[in-house]
Design a protein around this nucleic acid. Sequence first.
DNA 1: TTCATATTTCGATGATAATCGAAATAATTA
DNA 2: TAATTATTTCGATTATCATCGAAATATGAA
Lengths: 232, 232
Amino acid sequence: MKTNTNAAIIASLVSEASRAAILTVLLDGRYHPASELAYMAGIKPQTASFHLAKMVDANVVAVSQHGRHRYYGIQSQEVAQVMESFLSIAPPIKIKSLKQAKEDKAIRYARTCYDHLAGNLGVAITTSFLHKGLIDEKKEIFTITEDGKEFFTSFQIDLEKLKKKRRSFSHKCLDWSERRPHLAGALGNALLERFIELHWIQQLPKTRAIKITAEGEKGFKEIFAVDMSHSS
Amino acid sequence: MKTNTNAAIIASLVSEASRAAILTVLLDGRYHPASELAYMAGIKPQTASFHLAKMVDANVVAVSQHGRHRYYGIQSQEVAQVMESFLSIAPPIKIKSLKQAKEDKAIRYARTCYDHLAGNLGVAITTSFLHKGLIDEKKEIFTITEDGKEFFTSFQIDLEKLKKKRRSFSHKCLDWSERRPHLAGALGNALLERFIELHWIQQLPKTRAIKITAEGEKGFKEIFAVDMSHSS
DNA sequence: TTCATATTTCGATGATAATCGAAATAATTA
DNA sequence: TAATTATTTCGATTATCATCGAAATATGAA
């Protein structure tokens, strides 16, 4: 009898507009300060705090405090995948753009660089890498195999440069997907940039969404054996 | 895209506890009468009617009228998928005792259909009755054969008393998904009560769940040739 | 220390929506 | 026919909940 209320609690998180907005922002995989989330969702900080507390309580969102800031992020990969299926394509609500936020100047932590691939594509590509033996899944991270080194280099990604970057990740930019077996971080970022360079994907201006081009569809299929055609 | 829209609609319906309860019941794939759903969700029939109307309106639940009954059910597996994904990330149910844990497990096994046996047990027993020639299957109801009269009497069920009750004697409780109706009505109710009397099954307090006892397992097997052991 | 910033807690408000009693509708049974 | 049962509709009440102002807490900066 109590089992159903459990489902109801999770459902209420995605069906309420403000919470849906917050979760949609958090789906970029980063940790965001409460004030930024409030702004983007178009609600006052108190209200955001109220919602965030609920989400933390439901084990959907994790919080990590640094100084007077509290950074909120999606709890786990599993949660992210579920939320994405409900929120990713048709967000029911308006989210204020980051540009707007910056202009507003109220937020100086608004640095949401969309630095890695999320969503179906990100997962699909990671899976593909694993299958092809380009990366290995360890407890905390992915490691690159010898085959992987060869491949990524031939794909014009400078691994040495990335290793340096990786160390420079600041604690402010915690990313659940780094802790989880999901390709993100420096390599994920590099891949994203490379894909953009190749015109395989386009970043849509006001949203965090990306669009896969015709070239991209072809490329992902041929090189990564990942079918991203819209028919699915 | 259609999928996501539907998912969002389903999510908003699930977000209310009573509706979540109703949908949880409907997950068994059967069509249930409104009154039963009300009872199981712990709400009055009016309230259930209110919720069911909403869900029918949203094309999440289908309704089929038979006489004065209206049977509600879900035909798309999408609802099940949504519920499943929610429950997959929902915090685990806090189990207070080992007893409760076992009872929870038993819920899946068989449920009372308001006041008669449904679920696997109900269908199995009805099938057994048919095989043994104790009842005949008509269009809307079951009828009792001569052999049946003898058997039920020997099973301590007073058939004459049942006939006097102002309710259908042995109507079929539709089970469209399986195309296997089970025995309901006064006879179904009487059987349920007799099984409880024999301690073959136990009705769990707040839920409509029943638990099959060790005695029951033995009895169902010996007398009805119905194997209800947990291995299946 | 004092002031500003980030966030939460408290309390009140308002809107939405769930709930239920009472009555209506309809089918079934005696 | 009348009584019973299943369900819905209506109307009123109540509960829930998102929202935000005000104040509290905590941290960092001047």
